[in-house]
Simulated assay, not measured.
Amino acid sequence: MSEKVALIGSGNWGSAVAKIIGGNVHNFEHFDKEVKMWVFEEQVDGQNLTDIINTKHENVKYLPGIKLPENVVACPDLVQTCSDATMIVFVVPHQFVAGVCKQLKGKIPANCKAISLIKGIDYNDGGFRLISDMIQDALGIRSCVLSGANIASEVAEGRFCETTIGYRNRNDGELFRDIFHTPYFRVNIVEDVIGVELCGALKNIIAIGGGLVDGLKLGDNTKAAIIRIGLAEMRKFAQMFYKDVRDATFFESCGVADLITTCAGGRNRKVAEAHVTTGKSFDQLEQEMLNGQKLQGTSTAKDMYKILSKKGLCHEFPLMTTIYRICYEDLPPIKLVEDI
């Protein structure tokens, strides 16, 4: 039986991986060659974005200049995109996962499995959940996680990098490696879904700190210190709440490599730098700078602060706590290095 892949999401990262998956399904006999990609329908120059993608084979809004394989078919209907899929790739902002799962419940094949490329955690009054757990619980399917030092534009251009897939079921991990691994996008699989996922979520908070360092012009030594302290807090949090998280995972692409690249480039760093240099709020800068994309670092910092404050742990995580206060309580950015 052939595997059929569907993508949920079509921003810059979703479009970049659509290029990879659309090419890779031709390399294996056990994959259906059509890859449907759910696109939130919007107008671009008076045309539906799905129509543009399906005729020009390019996501002109979120990944301009990059050609997508012709077997990647944009679809505005979520259920139709996934109704016959056996492998679903989730790549939407984490705020939308619950709504997507609600629409898909009971409408996908029983043998389906998922992979989350989403950076974030879900917080509610009862505590927090990993995105992969949300998907598994809502849809009754297993979910892997992919995370790594993967700036979307560089991946789309075919520049060499690595990524990490965390799996619970090795066969699932190997299947998802088949659709992602290329000579320039090297995939390693590890049996640590939780560690991979938490690295991907928490590093966005630290990237805000990296951008604040740049805006304050504090230099490379300071940024290196923020990265080191940030990695230590990420590891401490993961192992405090999940005893099975492996130390080795923090030395995978999803860990230290992703933290370095996110603090050097990417949207969280860029917007945080602009916060210092312009004095504008993060919300305003998100609107002005991100072309409709979401800023994950600030929302994850808020979720983390709720978790830490509820459990009386803020003093144990001074860097993440200070970044939250700079983002949401108008704490002066220089406090980044004074309060940790």
Rank of each mutant, 00 (worst) to 15 (best):
I8R: 06
I66W: 03
G292T: 11
A201F: 10
N268E: 14
M37T: 01
V213K: 01
K243C: 12
E191W: 13
N27T: 10
N124P: 01
I141C: 14
G173A: 11
I135R: 00
Q239L: 10
L175G: 11
I165F: 13
G195V: 05
F28P: 05
C144P: 08
Q293C: 15
N221F: 00
K203Q: 07
T50Q: 01
S253T: 05
E329R: 07
Q43C: 14
P64L: 07
G140T: 08
G99K: 14
R168P: 07
M87W: 01
E58Y: 09
I323A: 07
N59E: 11
S253G: 05
D258M: 10
P93F: 08
D84P: 12
T261Y: 02
V97Q: 11
G23C: 14
L308S: 04
L336E: 09
C161K: 10
E174Y: 03
P332S: 08
A224G: 03
A224T: 02
S143F: 08
E273S: 06
A74L: 04
L331P: 05
C327R: 07
G140C: 08
E29G: 13
G22W: 12
F31S: 12
A225S: 07
G210E: 01
L218V: 11
G279A: 15
G265P: 04
M134K: 02
E157L: 15
L212K: 00
V187A: 13
G127P: 11
D244A: 13
G126K: 15
M304C: 15
G106K: 09
